[in-house]
């Protein structure tokens, strides 16, 4: 297979440098499997799909569930995004299509449509609050919550975890969002020795 390149690959070194300074931890998780699933939640197909992937599709808006190495995100009343490890797409598409068994279900491999950025650590919420209008308070948007929203001027899918957030960003926006995150993190990164700290 020819060489693959992830949308934020060029930022690896800068993410690492920023993460080393006590600010938020920034990183890209490249090449995750992402499958967009559209199905009527009340249909037998939805139930069969839940069985096939080992976890029922979450019906509560803005929630995410985990089952094995899959995470299922609620995107809309009849839309979910399935996240899995690199390389899982063909198998997953097949499993979903089989479970649909001819019912009108849409299964689309969108793995390369968005890339996954990690914004973690103590200052993750502070950094995101510079561009995200959602209330990210842990009581409101804690682990298990997800949302489609905007960060600065880009659409994102935000997923809350134990130690921060995963953020799914359209590939063409990845460089913009990466630059934005680095800029917003600047104030939280301890300056290298010799430079004055903020008062």
């Amino acid at each position: 297979m020819a060489e693959r390149r992830s949308p934020a690959a060029a930022f690896a070194a800068r993410f690492e440098a920023a993460s080393a300074g006590g600010g938020p931890r920034l990183a890209e998780i490249p090449f995750l499997t992402q499958i967009d699933l559209r199905v009527d939640p009340k249909s037998p197909a939805a139930e069969r799909i839940g069985t096939a992937i080992g976890v029922p599709l979450p019906l509560e808006p803005g929630t995410a569930v985990r089952g094995g190495d899959l995470t299922v995100l609620w995107l809309g009343p009849d839309e979910w995004l399935l996240l899995g490890p690199d390389g899982a797409a063909p198998g997953l598409v097949e499993r979903l299509t089989e479970a649909a068994a001819g019912e009108p279900v849409s299964v689309v491999d969108v793995s390369a449509q968005r890339t996954t950025l990690v914004v973690a650590g103590e200052r993750a919420r502070d950094v995101l609050a510079h561009g995200c209008a959602l209330d990210l308070h842990p009581r409101v948007f804690g682990p298990g919550r997800c949302a489609q929203t905007t960060l600065a001027r880009a659409g994102v899918v935000l997923v809350a975890g134990e130690d921060g957030f995963r953020m799914l960003v359209r590939s063409s926006f990845a460089a913009y969002v990466a630059e934005w995150l680095l800029d917003a993190s600047l104030e939280y990164v301890t300056p290298p020795a010799g430079e004055a700290a903020p008062a």
């Binding site: 390149r5 561009g131 600065a152 001027r153 359209r170 063409s172 460089a175 913009y176 934005w180 917003a184």
Partner: peptide
């Protein structure tokens, strides 16, 4: 605010941009 210079508006690029 931060919306100036290169961050004024998102710059969208393709996989071949580099």
């Amino acid at each position: 605010g931060r919306d100036r210079g290169p961050l004024h508006d998102p710059v969208r690029v393709t996989a071949m941009h580099e």
